[in-house]
Amino acid sequence: MPTILVSDLLGREVRDSRGTALGRVQDVVVRRTADGGYEVVGLVTGRSSVAGRWGYGGSLAPPPLLRAVLRRLRAHERYLRWDHIAELGETVRTSVPGERLGRRWSDVDPA
């Protein structure tokens, strides 16, 4: 069974179907399956994951100034559904143009 490490995915360059750079892979999104496993449903791309790791999750309500900074730091984040990946090489290529990617997984995949 072929395997891959999350650390190996993180940091790979991401380009859309027209070759525009979308940053790098910052995170891997999984979904709990009926049998109790975790299935990959997509990737988070962007320039940096740090603000995302801080500001992510909706439970954070930082003071206004900090919130503005965190939001700006996360402005580049995009969600890439697994079935929109055309090629998973050293560079990850998407099968759709960059502007069609949502900001959160729920924007495009209400499943």
Partner: peptide
């Protein structure tokens, strides 16, 4: 191994 020079800004 893939080159992953993308240190996060905060790491840098």
């Amino acid at each position: 191994m893939f080159a992953k020079s993308a240190a996060g800004p905060s790491a840098r």
